[in-house]
Design a protein around this nucleic acid. Structure first.
Lengths: 363, 363
DNA sequence: ACAGGTGTTGCATACGTATGCATTGTGGAG
DNA sequence: CTCCACAATGCATACGTATGCAACACCTGT
């Protein structure tokens, strides 16, 4: 090993400076160098300055790999996320990366093979000794839970929940959102409703559907027609086609997320020539970027991205600083962003900062 | 250290198994365990099986942090990417992550503070000992170059280029793409052209503009009007507003990327009531997801995402396996995806697999 | 002047793995 | 039967850093 690394260094020019090199140049011990780079360590200002000067001369940078090995903290958070064609996720990813980096963590991205089990991904994450896992996609197997608990790694779900008591989850109020949309559409005078589900095993889609369906019943409207879009643009388009081709066409469609709602609008407008918002109402969930674009004007339940990300980061860091703390199950409230893709109810609309929202008139 | 880690282990339950634990259980040396997990190492099948069995019992996983320290290879690629609201980038990120993971590398994501210098990001990447850098956004300072060369870390740019001879870059044919669009619009009978630039310091925007402008001149059309959209949706919308409010309105606008072109379509249609493709032509560059959505039908120069990602990964791995190899400068050819956002020329259109493209009739 | 406290420093070791080297065992060629 | 080649294995060490511990200097209060 030693001879090889020497020869490699020889061919690659000057070796990368280590704490020992800095120590030698500064005339102190390696410990002093380490302490100079550790906030709150016991070291005199003079020594710290000597070290800083030597480090500057040598272009020294602490090796975080070596540090990780000894401190047993990699300061790396594994983020599992696929399905990046849904704008909500890239934004979430960017925000997560920002927020974690503010607290001294970097994000390692795991996308997993499309359609594959999440287990190989888990394996890879554990080998890399990530400090924590944020799962924003992929359904977890039961192994996931126990393996992470054995490894002592906190797991935080974003935008989905689980039964496990040891895993934290941050979601928006999916049930209440679905219910609010039901009330909104009922107040708008719609009578033939439809729901487009995401994946069948998605807790998020289930919750939104439940809230929607229950509230519809409470408003005296029957069970909505149901199609499945699998969170996929093309699948959603096909589902929308089948809805609009049916003899009894719905007058309002609630899609389990914006990505599918945008597909629905595309089909309704481009293939069926419908004027969305007048001849048919389409409502989504997320308020991802394009929803607000004028050509769509998608009415949707807005998930507060920044707030959710903050909660994810807070939950992660909490469990990192106190491993005995309980997993949390946080529900962040959202609101209904009212635009033009759905017929408006006569009352209940309010405008604030140029954004329109709606609340049911009576409780 | 030792007493602390013992007490920590005690409170956290069974310690995470190491190669030593496996060795003890299997009745072999730690070296044997290491070799059992190293492809091509000198070890007998029997020993390998014994080790595998013991490892299975203990739930052993090789610690990649420790491995990185000794092999000086982290198997982590730093990917710098911001601007994820432009759909092109999330897709690229997903594809990069997939492709690298196929070759045994994981992706660490660096987004950088919006608007900040890339230097702190670089610092963080070097501390984490990434094996290579893929830069798909952020403009690099000159420090970047030398620091990475000192550290012996290959740098590969995606979708941008640089003067430095030591940095690889993968782009599509931006000049030719701009020229092709000019020819296409000229053939379509447009006479008052405009160009919407991205960022002024973006090589990509510059190249597309150059190709566009030169080819326009060759077709006897004057210098196009020029506005700046800074690759930003709202800025692009504002730029489009100014174009359409001017006394002499252009009959075709070439936007330096799709993201801005989509903003332009939104403004033209929703604010000015124009029928895009008939009253005004709008062309983009990228062929990111929404360009193909029916409501946009954006005519755009298609960058072959998969091919570009493959080239990026190939270039990265090439320099990793042979550090003395030269940096490459690869240009991946694209093609013009013709849809409905721009008036069609009378000749030159061809359809293949349901996709329409266009080539200039004569050379 | 002396005892005790406080703040700095270096030494030694540990983190978990990979690998050069020496040693051993095994089989085949002569 | 001898010798050599080669495969398999263990020992020892190295990667670069953090930190417990002991040694030490310096200061304060009596």
């Amino acid at each position: 090993m030693a001879p090889r690394s020497i020869s490699r260094a020889a061919e690659a020019g000057p070796r990368i400076a280590t704490a020992h090199d800095v120590a030698r140049l500064a005339g102190v011990s390696q410990s002093a160098v380490s302490r100079a780079f550790t906030a709150g360590a016991s070291i005199s200002p003079e020594t710290r300055d000597k070290v800083a000067e030597a480090a500057r001369k040598l272009g020294y940078r602490p090796n975080l790999v070596a540090r990780s090995l000894i401190t047993r903290r990699s300061h790396v958070i594994g983020v599992a996320m696929a399905y990046l064609e849904n704008q909500f996720y890239p934004r979430a990813l960017e925000a997560l990366s920002q927020a974690f980096s503010t607290r001294g963590y970097q994000v390692m991205l795991f996308t997993g093979k499309p359609g594959a089990s999440s287990d190989p991904m888990l394996e890879e994450m554990l080998r890399h000794k990530v400090d924590a896992l944020v799962m924003a996609s992929a359904s977890l197997s039961s192994r996931f839970d126990v393996e992470c608990q054995n490894a002592g790694i906190p797991v935080v779900l974003m935008n989905r929940r689980t039964e496990s008591r040891s895993i934290s989850s941050i979601t928006s109020d999916n049930r209440q959102g679905g219910a609010l949309i039901a009330a909104f559409l009922a107040a708008g005078g719609h009578r033939h409703l439809a729901f487009m589900a995401g994946s069948e095993n998605s807790s998020t889609s289930q919750d939104r559907e439940e809230g929607f369906t229950h509230a519809l019943a409470a408003h005296g409207l029957g069970t909505p027609r149901r199609v499945v879009g699998l969170y996929d643009f093309d699948q959603a388009a096909a589902a929308m086609r089948s809805l609009l081709s049916a003899p009894e066409r719905p007058d309002a469609v609630f899609c389990a997320n914006d990505h599918m709602a945008l597909a629905a609008i595309n089909v309704a407008r481009a293939e069926f020539g419908l004027e969305v918002g007048r001849e048919i109402s389409i409502v989504g969930f997320d308020d991802a970027g394009p929803a607000a674009w004028p050509v769509f004007g998608l009415t949707t339940y807005a998930q507060p991205l920044r707030a959710m990300v903050e909660e994810v980061v807070a939950a992660t860091c909490a469990r990192l600083s106190d491993p005995t703390s309980q997993a949390v199950r946080t529900i962040v409230p959202g609101w209904l962003a009212v635009r033009s893709s759905a017929r408006l109810p006569p009352v209940g609309l309010t405008v604030r900062d140029g954004l329109t929202t709606w609340m049911p008139p009576e409780v």
